[in-house]
């Protein structure tokens, strides 16, 4: 018998990037592309958001792909198949506003690529022509190439060091596509804030519909703490309950970047502690 919140599968996709399946039947039965969950690895842990990459309503699992960046994600990696995590709540946020657009451009970077996967799959299912651009620092760090190929008509790859595909950033590939005269009706970007900002800048005025999935810091995930607030179209909104996807052309990217730095010092202390305890 598989218990709720048990890890039922775990795989390292690239250095420090893991794919896990967690038994969460209540979430799996209600999940939609673009939504996320809040998890706590253990009782004294933080509440951290993770995008739903895939889910199975019949069996009851959800899939997440995460990168180890600090205390909570490292603690998640210390859990093995068979272990339970303390808390899973969701699905949270609004589903992606997918429909039949025509030609759609998907741009993903790092762990944003798996996050993009269910959205692309849904767009493809709805009959869109899906062109995907994914990027990583180097070819070894590139994940979800195969999965994205299965739900895209075409996949373009970029690496910062040129070890695979185009040398450069995803936004360079986007520029190239646009310069080649490709026309798109909608674009989704999921990845680091800087990447999403850059994509928004080059597609603005050229692609009418544009969504980014914002990665604000969160505490509650249900709209009561205000930690995840950002300015979109000159209005303060909450990423967790009003997003996580917003019109990329309306997002105040500078402010998002500022707010992501709010706990830098404390995150370092926490990480040092974990290292000091000899756990890493």
């Amino acid at each position: 018998m598989i218990e709720e919140r048990q890890i039922i599968y775990k795989k390292e996709l690239a250095t420090n990037i893991y794919e896990i399946l967690v038994q969460a039947p209540k979430v799996a039965r209600a999940a939609h592309a673009g939504q996320f969950v809040l998890i706590m690895v253990e009782e004294k842990g933080e509440r951290i958001p993770m995008t739903l990459v895939d889910w199975n309503p019949e069996v009851g699992w959800i899939k997440m792909v995460y990168q180890e960046v600090g205390t909570s994600t490292i603690k998640l990696s210390m859990k093995n198949v068979g272990d339970e995590i303390y808390y899973v709540a969701g699905p949270l946020g609004h589903p992606s506003r997918v429909s039949k657009f025509g030609n759609v451009l998907m741009v993903g970077g790092g762990v944003g690529i798996p996050a993009l996967y269910p959205i692309a799959r849904e767009l493809k299912r709805l009959g869109n022509r899906v062109i995907t651009v994914i990027g990583a620092k180097t070819s070894n760090a590139l994940i979800y190439e195969k999965e994205m190929s299965e739900v895209s008509d075409e996949v373009r790859i970029t690496t910062d060091d040129g070890s695979k595909g185009l040398k450069g950033f995803t936004v360079d590939a986007v520029k190239l596509l646009l310069n080649q005269g490709e026309k798109f009706d909608a674009v989704w970007a999921v990845g680091p804030a800087l990447m999403m900002k850059a994509v928004a800048e080059v597609t603005n005025g050229k692609i009418p519909v544009s969504y980014s999935s914002l990665n604000s810091l969160m505490v509650c995930g249900v709209g009561m703490c205000g930690a995840c607030r950002v300015t979109v179209g000159h209005k303060t909104v909450l990423t967790c309950v009003d997003g996580p996807e917003f019109d990329s052309y309306q997002v105040n990217w500078k402010e998002l970047a500022i707010r992501l730095q709010a706990y830098k010092k404390e995150e370092m202390i926490s990480l040092e502690m974990l290292k000091g305890a000899g756990k890493v």
Partner: peptide
């Protein structure tokens, strides 16, 4: 917001950071 601050302190026990993982500034 007071809710973020108080949630970090009360619910997530940030006053016991770093024993508890949630930071408070």
């Amino acid at each position: 917001t007071a809710n973020e601050f108080l949630t970090r302190v009360n619910l997530m026990k940030a006053y016991m950071f770093p024993e508890y993982d949630t930071p408070i500034h």
